[in-house]
Nucleic acid binder design. Sequence first.
DNA 1: CATTTATTTCATTTTTTTCTGAAGAAAGTA
DNA 2: TACTTTCTTCAGAAAAAAATGAAATAAATG
Lengths: 175, 175
Amino acid sequence: MRQAGKENGLSPLQGEIVDFMVRLFRLMGLPKTIGSIYGYIYASPHPVAMDDLTQGLGISLGSASQGLRTLKVFRAIKPAYEQGGRREYFEAETNFQQFVGAFLKGELEQYIENTEKRTKRMDQQLSEISDLSDKEFFEKRVKRLSTMSERARQILPIIGEIFLSEEAAKLSDHE
Amino acid sequence: MRQAGKENGLSPLQGEIVDFMVRLFRLMGLPKTIGSIYGYIYASPHPVAMDDLTQGLGISLGSASQGLRTLKVFRAIKPAYEQGGRREYFEAETNFQQFVGAFLKGELEQYIENTEKRTKRMDQQLSEISDLSDKEFFEKRVKRLSTMSERARQILPIIGEIFLSEEAAKLSDHE
DNA sequence: CATTTATTTCATTTTTTTCTGAAGAAAGTA
DNA sequence: TACTTTCTTCAGAAAAAAATGAAATAAATG
C-alpha cells in the first residue's frame, strides 16, 4: 500500500481520504491499518463488508477483522442493515468530534488516574528521607509533579468541552 | 532497565520520578530513553554529565548523546556552569508547561498545515467528478474534513493558552 | 446435520522503531 | 604536536509494534 488505492479500485480522491484518515488515526496513536479501514469506509458511498476491505486496501483478513473490531469499540463505524446477504456491512460514523474526543478523553483520563497513584507513592517515599537538604529538594520536585497532575485533571473537562460540547456538535453535525 | 534504578545508584523515589517522566514523554510520542534521561536529570540535586547517565541508567553512550541533544532542542534541559572539569553538565528545566506545551503546539501546527494542503487537493479532485450523485456524496465528505481542519486551527490557540498563558506560568512557576 | 460462507484468533513473520558501541571528530592539555 | 578525554555519528543489532494467514469457530442454508 504505497500510495493508498493505486493497485486497486480506489479513485484518487478516495485515496486522499484514506491517507487523511491514516494520519488522523496515527495522531491518536493507532496503526495505519485502522486509519485506512476507517478511511475506506468513510470514502464509500455504500456500506462496506470485510471482503471489500481486504480487496480494496490489500490488507489481510486478520487485520481487517481486528481493525473493524477496534473501530466498532469506539464507535467510529456502525453496522448497516443491508438487504439479502449474510455478510456484515458497516458504514462510517461521520462526527469525528464525538469519537475522536471520546477516545482522547478516555486515554487522558486513564493516564491521569495512573499519574495520581504515582504522585501518592512519591509522597510516601518523601517521608522516608532523612537528609534535610535532600528532603527539601525532592519535596520541591514532587510538588511540581503533583501540581501538574492536578492541573491536568482541571484541563480534562476543557478537552471534553472542546470536542464534545453542544457547540462542537452543532459545528460538525449539519450533514 | 526493568524498574528504573534498580541495579544502580538511584533511590526508590528517584526511580519513581524516572518512570514518571518515561510515561510523560511517551505521551508526547518520545522514546523511553529520552524520558528516562530527563527523569534522571530532573531527579538529581546536582548537575548531570553524560557519564552519569550511561552509568546511572545503564544506557549506551549513543543514546545518552542523542537524548541530550533532543532535550536541548526543545529546552527541557539547560547547560549548567560547573566548576573545574571540561565536561558539559546539564540541569532540568522544570516548567513542563513551557516545553511540553511548545512541543505539542509545534507538532499540532505542523499537522494542521499539512492537513490544510490535503483538503485543498481534495477540493480540486472534487471538481473532476462528473457523476452527479457521487459528486454530492464526496462533497459532503470533504466538507466535513475541511470543517474539521478549520476547527482544529481555531483550537490551536486555546491549546497554547492552556499551556503557555501567563496564568499557566504562574500556576507552575512558584518554585 | 453436512456443507458452504463469513469471521475471529493467535502463533509466526515482517516492518518499524529504538538502542548500541566502535570509529572518528572535537576540544582541551602538556 | 602528541596525548588524553569527551562527545557525536551512524551502520548494524535488538526490541517493539503491526500485519499475515492458516486453523478454529460461528452462522447460515438446504
